[in-house]
Design a protein around this nucleic acid. Structure first.
Lengths: 197, 197
DNA sequence: TCGTCAATTATTGCATACAAAATTACATTG
DNA sequence: CAATGTAATTTTGTATGCAATAATTGACGA
């Protein structure tokens, strides 16, 4: 609900309120809340109610920067290990993305986009890297939902994905790094620009 | 206790056991456990007892790789913002490290080492980067405790810190990146070699 | 009108108890 | 002896209640 912005950033709530919303008692609710707090999605301030963590443009930009660095690390690792089957799977994801884009099916498109990036980074074979990447990517998902980026950006993004896949097919690690990073930068700019407006 | 290896990696325990150890009830204990699990320090397997997460040489190596990428990102950011006061503070930490090293005060030395690296990355001004870095660094702390690296490595490490500080003083971002990464690689090798033996 | 202090209320922290789920041990059968 | 089903035990998931803490309100005095 937080990631999908069904709970607005900054929204304040008490444990009691959530108990009524979810129909569970405070014990499991608190356990969940503490985890969300440790992940930075919720801020708990004892006796003042918890709040859905706000996410500032600055934090979004910083998160993109870190993701960029991780993608840069991943590039050569991926090219060292990627198989033709892996490439085929990624191709399939991009194909499905196109169809979801044409159908303007936003939720499915977003999920496939996550899938594309996480599958890509997963090919690095570095589980710590993938884990770190996923956590940060998830936090940005909120920003994506907020700006609801337009079809224009979606089609640009598709071209960039194809461009990335070309580097992957050539097993050119350094080039893959550059293209991943470039895609990352453009996505960041698109989201931050929309957020300004 | 986990980070200091006072709880052995792989050790199994039930909630009931920990309740007796810590003298609290299951409710707050479970909240703590869930957080540790979400941070990857504990693995919870329902009805089979939880275990202290094991940390493999492979995972250590992968973590160092990610830290290296983060340091690479940090280098230029740091040099863009660092003040003379900041540099003086870092110098002071290295001085204190030397004295703790001479006194063979392992715990203090480790804490100062954490302080040095985290202060350095903090100078990047990127809070997300610092946060990510800290989490990964903390997980490696366990490995440091395990291998209890020797005075030999400590003195090498001190030289590398001085070498890093030189690049910082010259505000050479690219060079700072390289030296941070080199230090990272050497530390990783030292720890992994010791772990083998 | 402002500030201070006390009383009230809201909110949380923790302990306990019960129920459900899964594992383990054990007996029975082929 | 292996395999399977069942009972007993372990372990966990959740609900509830009480106590403690902090925030808020209101009254009183300067």
């Amino acid at each position: 609900m937080i990631i999908r912005c069904e709970l607005e950033p900054g929204a304040r709530f008490t444990e009691h309120e959530l108990v009524e919303v979810f129909g569970v008692s405070r014990t499991p609710l608190r356990e969940a809340l503490k985890i969300l707090a440790s992940e930075g999605l919720v801020e708990m301030r004892p006796h003042r109610g918890s709040t859905v963590a706000r996410i500032s443009p600055k934090e979004i930009a910083q998160t993109f920067d870190v993701l960029g660095a991780l993608e840069e690390l991943a590039g050569p690792l991926i090219c060292d290990r990627v198989s033709n089957v892996d490439i085929a799977r990624l191709d399939q994801i991009t194909t499905e993305m196109s169809s979801k884009r044409d159908a303007a099916d936003r939720n499915s498109y977003f999920e496939l986009n996550i899938s594309f990036h996480q599958s890509m980074i997963g090919l690095s074979g570095n589980a710590v890297l993938l884990n770190t990447y996923n956590q940060l990517f998830a936090k940005l998902q909120r920003a994506r939902y907020m700006v609801n980026d337009d079809q224009n950006r979606w089609s640009e993004s598709a071209k960039e994905h194809a461009w990335i896949m070309d580097a992957l097919r050539q097993r050119d690690g350094a080039e893959l790094s550059r293209r991943l990073k470039e895609h990352n930068t453009r996505t960041a700019q698109a989201i931050l620009a929309k957020l300004d407006a």
